[in-house]
Design a binder for these strands. Sequence first.
DNA 1: TTGTAAGCGTTATCAT
DNA 2: ATGATAACGCTTACAA
Lengths: 339, 339
Amino acid sequence: MIKIADVARAAQVSPSTVSRALTKPDLVAPETRERVLQAARQLGYQPNKLARGLRKQQSRLLGLIVSDILAPFHATLAKGVQDAAEKHGYMVFLFNSDEQPEKEARYLQELQSHWPEGLLIVPTAKTRQHLRNLRSAGSMPIIELDRTSGTPGVHAVLVENVLGAREAVEHLISLGHRRIGMVTGEPVITTAQERLEGYRQALKAAGIALDERLVANGYHKEEGGYAATLQLLRLPAPERPTALFVGNSEMAAGAVQAIRDLGLRIPEDISLVSFDDTRWAQLMEPALTVVAQPAYEIGYLACETLVSLLRQKAPAEGRILRLKTRLLIRHSTARPRED
Amino acid sequence: MIKIADVARAAQVSPSTVSRALTKPDLVAPETRERVLQAARQLGYQPNKLARGLRKQQSRLLGLIVSDILAPFHATLAKGVQDAAEKHGYMVFLFNSDEQPEKEARYLQELQSHWPEGLLIVPTAKTRQHLRNLRSAGSMPIIELDRTSGTPGVHAVLVENVLGAREAVEHLISLGHRRIGMVTGEPVITTAQERLEGYRQALKAAGIALDERLVANGYHKEEGGYAATLQLLRLPAPERPTALFVGNSEMAAGAVQAIRDLGLRIPEDISLVSFDDTRWAQLMEPALTVVAQPAYEIGYLACETLVSLLRQKAPAEGRILRLKTRLLIRHSTARPRED
DNA sequence: TTGTAAGCGTTATCAT
DNA sequence: ATGATAACGCTTACAA
């Protein structure tokens, strides 16, 4: 690889002049500058970011840990982050915790040794203690996405989960449903808590008593959603729900399969609405009614926030941003059967 | 951040001893070693990978450029790469070229400055010349995934595209179809060429003449697939295809929508088979017949190959690995209408 | 305006 | 077995 010394030799100047010509052009005579730039171009010089980072004590690196890169929501989130990072000259190290706290801890350590200037993370159940154990955590701005770990001082970009869930359930109620089941995520995750709260609020506002048997944990995953749905729909007839609200798209995929495996039809036998819009939700028959989240915007905004935090040296106090969701009514929700 | 000097002071030894205790434990007395390790643990020491990389002239970094991170195929590919990389102690820089050669060129440069030890890439149309312009390209092993740019000396992990496409089209032919359309990707991309070739071979083997009007370019994207499908299905009745073979899942999503917008039913009015298995292909009604690719395995295997190349210093000559595809017959393909 | 020299944190070499 | 020293490539006082 070409280094500064090579360019310096070619341009007949000292290494410092090359460095200046490249990074602070106005500090060097126009004529020399031209000579240096030309030599650099000719040789195909690329500054070594390791050396530069070491010397300047800054890596221009951001860490991003999502909890499920295969889920469209997270992939889109990551794209938003990357696009924003690129705009500001940052590189992104992307990791995938798979919702496993141990993986998260490992990646956090690995990441730390690369001296990232900031961290974006979709927290898992143990993130709070992981961050507490991290030496660098105090000095580095951290932004949480989608959910929050409750770590003091961290920033977060989330959506209006309570409101979004409430609107979804109110939609079901307005269609005439009274027995509405919910497939929720793990209760330690804030999105699960908040969406459950929205479900509760909607029921309460409509004067419908909460039946704990109608709430089942799907652990954020497809298989969990399948099992939870089976459990809910196998309740004896009088208790069985006529509509289901599902906490995310992974579990919704499981729910759809469970419903089909039971030989039930959507929406004639059971209405279905879930969080997250995805391609399959649009293409399935009938198209799924969903609470759409602005995934790309969450990622982009979070990264913009992080960069602006990095610019102003003062460590701003943790702020939480909440973006709006949109209820997209399609064809998986209808009036309950009269019988 | 804690550095070696801090640990050295705490353990009452020199920095060199700390370094040795951490990386070559057998070169240091058991007793001293214990003291150092303890101090390191206590202080939460993490080696600075920038400094280490600079000194050892190796970054333990791999670059990965995919062409569409939002497509499940690429996301899965990336996961395979990351899992394999992690196993061997490598970090992965993930980029997304969006099929845009300019983006690819930018990322390649950016990547280069971070001194990756190897590169994994899903090439775009201009990758060959980009790699030629890269100073580091000669010294660094490169593996291409999914497609190949034809760059001399690079390795590649691909699938049996010709065979996979041929099986899909033969399946349609065996159902009685004679007028089979194909929505293909950009002709400069090798997967598009090979899948088209498989289509041609299947037709030829069945004694069906190739009709160029039945082949339309969908540019690998959903919108392109939509437009191409519309074009094919608007042919006058005698020429109109009774079945469609689509080159990837993005275009297939567009095809499904075009078919629906035309008020046609799958498979009664038109049979559909595409490359790539996805969740929506499984959940849509009727479930889509597809040529499934082992995306995770491609990524994992490519990364394993890269790492083994890194281990053996000798620059092995370019080898191409081809994995098998599987035709999954579901419900989107049936006999053509009799009329 | 340009050059010299020191230093970022680590490890390899050479002494001891 | 351990320590001193130099070097990786870059930037930045400071000197000229």
